[in-house]
């Protein structure tokens, strides 16, 4: 088995193995597609799902000798292989984006200059990102960067990061507006929620500690210092409630994982081809 997966001895043999592997895979996929009907495909998908889950679960629960069992040595290569396979899916979302914006530009739909801007930004980041990756400056960086590295820095630190931060910082305004317009003490539960929110909000900031700084830390009333009260709410009211939710999530996730592992789920990604 280890001889089968040994590295190719020469570059020419490597090229041959790569071509054979590629062509062989395509032929295998073709044969599977032609040979398997809907029931066979469903069966194959169920078997692959089951074996993938069984591998990881079994390696963990199977008894060990000298801290390993017969599957332990396979964990690292299989995990790396699955991670690398997952990396190839990066194009899925990008293909979708390019399709949508490409149609906008090709058909000159309203707002097509924005779609063109999307492509310009996409290609600029791709080109200068890869160019900068292949012209590393080392550490310490020189005072004058190569111009392509400079452009990449401007794209990343000058546009990409600020745009993302600014977009998410808009939430501060929305939460202020929503707090004023929508947070109403209509019920006792809402009032409880609001009081807890006030105490935690003040307890987390220096002004809260300042407001109740008159209560000595050693006095029995120190519990009512805002920062102490806020910590107490987070540790002894919020924490057990969150733990209850964690237990609920744990059981639900276990049930869901079992259903997925045993291919009992039905839905968009699990249903058979029509």
């Amino acid at each position: 088995m280890s001889r089968l997966f040994a590295p190719a001895p020469t570059p020419r043999l490597l090229a041959a193995y790569l071509v054979i592997g590629l062509v062989g895979s395509v032929i295998l996929i073709y044969l599977l597609h032609r040979g398997l009907g809907p029931r066979g495909r469903r069966w194959l998908i169920a078997v692959v799902t089951f074996v993938a889950g069984l591998f990881y679960g079994l390696e963990f629960y199977y008894p060990v000798h000298n801290r390993k069992n017969f599957l332990t040595d396979w964990i690292e290569p299989v995990s790396v292989m699955i991670a690398v396979i997952g990396a190839f899916t990066v194009g899925l979302g990008i293909y979708s984006l390019c399709q949508v914006h490409g149609r906008n530009v090709a058909r000159r739909r309203p707002g097509w200059p924005n779609s063109l801007a999307f492509f310009v930004a996409f290609l600029a980041m791709l080109v200068f990102g890869l160019w900068s990756h292949y012209t590393p400056v080392g550490e310490p960086a020189p005072k004058v960067l190569p111009w392509q590295n400079g452009v990449y820095e401007v794209l990343f630190n000058g546009l990409f990061a600020p745009l993302q931060t600014a977009t998410f910082s808009l939430l501060a305004f929305y939460i202020a507006s929503a707090a004023y317009r929508a947070f109403r003490m209509r019920t006792a539960e809402a009032a409880l929620m609001m009081i807890a929110a006030f105490i935690v909000m003040l307890g987390q900031v220096p002004v809260g500690a300042w407001i109740t700084s008159g209560i000595p830390l050693t006095s029995p009333w120190a519990f009512f210092r805002l920062e102490t009260l806020g910590e107490w709410i987070l540790n002894w009211l919020n924490m057990p409630a969150q733990r209850g939710i964690v237990f609920g999530i744990a059981v639900g996730a276990l049930a869901m994982s079992l259903r997925v592992w045993l291919s009992l789920e039905r839905g968009t990604f699990f249903s058979e081809q029509r």
Binding site: V90, G91, V120, L130, L163, Q164
Partner: peptide, 28 residues
Amino acid sequence: RFFEHIFVGLSAGYLLVATWAFNLEGRW
């Protein structure tokens, strides 16, 4: 809206760069 589109484009481009540079190149 213009800046939103710029952001999406930069994000998509960077994802490709990062996936190749930090994963596929060294691990595949």
